[in-house]
Simulated assay, not measured.
Amino acid sequence: MTDILIAHASDLHLTLDTLRIRARDLLNKRALSYLSWQRRRLIHRTDMLRRVMADITAHKVDMLAVTGDLTNLGLPDECAQAARWLSELPMPVTVVPGNHDALVSSDWHQSIGRWAPWMGPLPFPFVRRVGPVALIGINSAHPTPCFQASGDIGAHQAARLADALEETGRQGLCRVVMIHHPPLARLTPRRKSLRDADRFAACIARHGAELVLHGHTHVSTIATLPAPDGPVPVVGVASASARSPDPARAASWNLVHISPAANGGYRTEITRRIMLPDGRATATPPIIFTPAASSPVHSGISTPR
């Protein structure tokens, strides 16, 4: 087996500054998000995202996994801008949508559907192969009322997820699940949570996985979910465009190194790469998960309690 390197980034929030926002675009929930952007534009910076992408490119990864929120308002022009951005990247990319990408009901082909070249066969969850790795993409992002940013996977998608995990597991693949909302209730307030996190957790507990990647919280975290062959790491990452002096919130990406384990299965090594606002780049010590391990070998990423 060839080792596989995956870069995990999330919550890019590509700038609105180059787009024309019309008044009619804001006659819905987008108005609140647009007002919020006037504050967040000072945090989500194009220069920080460029540094993240330059660092990812330098590591020559086999795949970039983006767990949602490429946009701010989910406008068709934003989705088109994000598609152009994706098309110019020098590495393969897999994308799942975030809540900002599905802020209000929109025509699929004019919005998130523009990113179909960077997804697998739909409907969700899709499966994309990278050597012995199966990227399984979940859609947890659906329009919600004002002041809500929650998500869900639903019963039908959960049933298909169970089938995908079972089939890729039978094939002996390393199963990496991508989802925008964190699938543990304690990681975010209720109004921003995955409403059916218990359904997701039950699916993992029954069918297993090797890794879950998520975004949404804008904080780098690591936790676990129980599964038949041992705990499954659940890894979140800060926004890839955030300017912050706090290392847990500063623009970051996760380098995921997947290799064969000595006793069978897969060894997963996770290193967080952090872009500090003073121009320095730093990295956490790697966290290593092996099959049936009860805990990571080393914890260098902030772990929620």
Score class of each variant (00 low, 15 high):
Val66Glu: 01
Ala242Asn: 01
His100Tyr: 07
Arg170Glu: 08
Leu187Glu: 06
Lys29Val: 09
Pro247Glu: 08
Gly151Cys: 07
Leu42Arg: 08
Thr188Phe: 00
Gly68Lys: 02
Ala283Lys: 13
Glu167Pro: 09
Ser259Asp: 00
Ala261Phe: 01
His298Arg: 15
Thr18Gly: 13
Arg22His: 03
Val177Gly: 08
Gly137Leu: 01
Val234Ala: 12
Pro247Phe: 14
Asp55Leu: 12
Pro226Met: 03
Ile153Ser: 05
Ile21Asn: 13
Asp278Met: 10
Met178Cys: 11
Ala205Leu: 10
Thr224Arg: 07
Trp253Met: 11
Ala162Arg: 15
Leu42Met: 02
Gly98Asp: 05
Ile179His: 03
His181Thr: 13
Val235Met: 14
Ser106Asp: 02
Ile43Val: 11
Gly113Ala: 10
Ser87Glu: 12
Glu166Ser: 08
Ser220Arg: 10
Pro182Ser: 06
Leu173Val: 06
Arg280Met: 05
Pro92Ser: 05
Thr2Ser: 14
Thr282Met: 15
Cys79Lys: 00
Glu88Tyr: 02
Pro132Ala: 08
Ala162Tyr: 06
Leu255Glu: 09
Pro97His: 00
Ile56Pro: 14
Gly215Asp: 04
Gly113Met: 11
Ala162Asn: 09
Ser244Trp: 07
Gln110Cys: 04
Gln38Gly: 03
Ser295Arg: 12
Arg170Phe: 07
Arg40Asp: 06
Ser299Ile: 15
Ser33Val: 00
Leu89Cys: 12
Met48Gly: 06
Leu49Arg: 10
Thr144Asn: 11
Asp25Ile: 04
Thr46Gln: 08
Ala250Leu: 04
Cys174Tyr: 05
Leu16Cys: 04
Glu210Cys: 07
Gly264Gln: 07
Trp37Ser: 02
Trp85Asp: 11
Glu167Gly: 03
Ala185Arg: 09
Pro76Ile: 03
Arg84Cys: 12
Ile112Glu: 00
Thr221Tyr: 15
Pro245Trp: 13
Asp25Val: 06
His59Tyr: 10
Pro117Gly: 12
Ala141Arg: 06
Gln157Gly: 13
His216Asn: 05
Ala134Cys: 06
Thr290Val: 09
Thr168Ala: 13
Asp77Leu: 01
Gly215Trp: 08
Thr94Cys: 05
Val127Ala: 08
Thr221Asp: 15
Lys60Gln: 15
Asp246Tyr: 13
Met91Ser: 05
Asp11Tyr: 13
Ile153Gln: 06
Arg129Leu: 04
Ala223Glu: 14
Ser295Gly: 04
Ile43Pro: 07
Arg199Ile: 12
Val237Ser: 09
Arg267Asp: 07
Arg129Glu: 04
His180Arg: 11
Ala293Ser: 15
Ala250Tyr: 05
Tyr34Leu: 08
Lys29His: 14
Thr94Met: 04
Val93Lys: 02
Val235Tyr: 11
His13Ala: 05
Thr221Trp: 15
Ala162Asp: 10
Leu135Gly: 04
Ala227Tyr: 02
